[in-house]
Design a protein around this nucleic acid. Structure first.
Lengths: 158, 158
DNA sequence: CGGGATCCTAGACGATACTG
DNA sequence: CAGTATCGTCTAGGATCCCG
């Protein structure tokens, strides 16, 4: 069972998935495929840890080791980091090269594609950071509107 | 119990979450908060359905109804659409206006912030779509490398 | 028609132990 | 050190019912 990392949305759209989603047989998997394969790449790149890993790899472009990445990304588990790296590598965003098999020495770096993707991502992050005041204001307004207009409880507003 | 839609990562980091994640007391929730609040906005905007909703709202900027959005986004459930719309509205990405209370007539549209965010997102999507050949090639190479080099089983690759 | 409340499953995620 | 396997937990997400 060395074949159980991530990736499950676009590999084999035949009989692999679709049962639990498509209760019928004719509308089965087209719903999840969304009709474009770029969706999966987008989701992989915008995944929770993927953004952080992409950022971390952007900072140190000399090739980072697993442990260094773990330390840099902070709260990521080995499983999630490994999974994220595999997904990103499979999509051609990161390049994994084994420097020495024993003891293990592996370095991860961004491919040109990954670097450009990271640029787009970082651009979005930067944009959002610059507009966070609007977001915070909107959130506050939304919270106040429903806390004072409808029924309110003593909870911490979540 | 009218307060149970989405949003739960950045509101009350006190006792809401952190026990199952932070096994220690000093490294508790800083791991999940990532130290920047823009993370939540980023995750909301890049969420699975959020991208599709943002795209759908970009296409028809005249204000779309719930049912129309459901039809346009395709495989989304009412719950997910409602949840996504609420999250996007709370962050100030979409504007929700009630045209008529009974029978219900609600129209959703993008705010300027939402429109710019959608632009960034669509830019990334467009970029990825243009590079999908690289992605597909990388995926194929990755798949072949592990299918022929390591141990392979008779599963559907999933 | 819009969408909230509820129930349930599948998958995401984290911690740990183990291997080479 | 790099990574996998396994297990347990939590939440995202979907189906359904029902109310305004």
């Amino acid at each position: 069972m060395s074949t159980t990392p991530p990736a499950s949305e676009d590999a084999s759209p035949a009989e692999a998935a679709g049962e639990q989603a498509g209760h019928f047989e004719d509308v089965a998997f087209d719903v999840f495929q969304k009709r474009c394969p770029s969706r999966s790449a987008l989701e992989h790149a915008t995944a929770k840890w993927a953004v952080l890993v992409l950022s971390a790899l952007t900072e140190g472009e000399g090739g980072a080791r697993f442990g260094a990445l773990r330390r840099r990304v902070d709260g990521v588990s080995e499983k999630m980091l490994s999974q994220t790296l595999q997904t990103l590598e499979r999509d051609g965003f990161v390049d994994r090269r084994v420097l020495r098999p024993i003891p293990p020495h592996v370095e991860y770096s961004l491919t040109p594609l990954g670097r450009e993707t990271a640029r787009h991502l970082l651009g979005l992050v930067d944009f959002l950071e610059g507009r966070m005041d609007e977001v915070v204001a909107a959130r506050d307004a939304y919270d106040r509107a429903r806390d004072g207009g409808g029924d309110h409880r003593g909870d911490g507003a979540d």
